[in-house]
Each structure stands twice: as C-alpha cells, then as structure tokens.
Amino acid sequence: MLVKRPPLFLYVTLAVSVGYFISAIGLGAPVSESGLTPSFFPILVGGAAIVFSSILILQKIRTEPKEPGASGPRNFTHLWVVLAIFIYIIAFKPAGYFISSGIFVFVLVVLFSSFEKLLQKAVISVAIVVIAYVMFQQLFGVRLPTLWG
C-alpha cells in the first residue's frame, strides 16, 4: 500500500511548534495570583500550532498518493538565489556597496537567465547598481557602506 509522505516543511513546523511550546512552558507557570503570566499566551499559541501541524500531517498521510512522475520538472534556482543573498549580506559591509552589489546583481541576472552574453549582463548589472545607489544615497539620503571611508 502506498502511503503519501507529507512535505518535510510540515515536520519542520511541527518540530518548531513543539520547541516553541517547550520554551513557553520554561517561562514559568501560565497563571499566577496576579493573573496571566508572560508564558500563558505562548503556551496557547504553541499548543494550537502543534494541533494544526498534526492535523495537516495526518491529512497528507490519508490523502491518495499521486501517480509516480505526476509532478512537474523541479527547479532549484531558488536555492542559489538564497545562497547569493546570504553571501551578499555577509559581504555587504566588509566589501562595500559597489563591489558586493555589482557581483550580486550580476549573479542574479545570470541565475534568472542563462550563461550567455555575459558582457551585456555585466553592463546591465553595473547600471542597476549605480541607479540603486543614486536612489538610496542621493535621493533618499541613505548612507550605504563603502570599501574605504
């Protein structure tokens, strides 16, 4: 018998809900003589989250599994985008706005298109970075980090 496996995301939400609930209990008794304590509401919310997560996991297990191969082609570009953003944030202050943003935008343009016409894409990336700089720094007065000074 085929049993549909719920998405990993649901197990993660259940685990986070349980962790939150345990942390909430760790805040102390939910009710004291003076009334509700800071732990009452989080215990309530954490409990509700566990219930909803469990319902969703059970629902997924009970639903009919899809035919093998029914799902469409998978695309992992979003993982590269997340990684690019993560590295960009780390490099943002040490490398300064221009260097970090220039490389970041170029990588994004390539990720959303293809590994062709790289020179044209590099020029577009520089233009985007300069326009964004003018917008943030000159127009809205936001101080962006620079490599020197």
Binding site: Y88, V105, L111, I128
Partner: peptide, 13 residues
C-alpha cells in the same frame, strides 16, 4: 532577469 535582480537588490538593501 533584470526585473528580478532589481527587485532583489531593492528588497535586500
């Protein structure tokens, strides 16, 4: 590609 690059940099910065 240009559109999403612009959106991302505007969002992150």
């Amino acid at each position: 590609d240009v559109l999403y690059a612009v959106i991302t940099i505007l969002a992150v910065v």
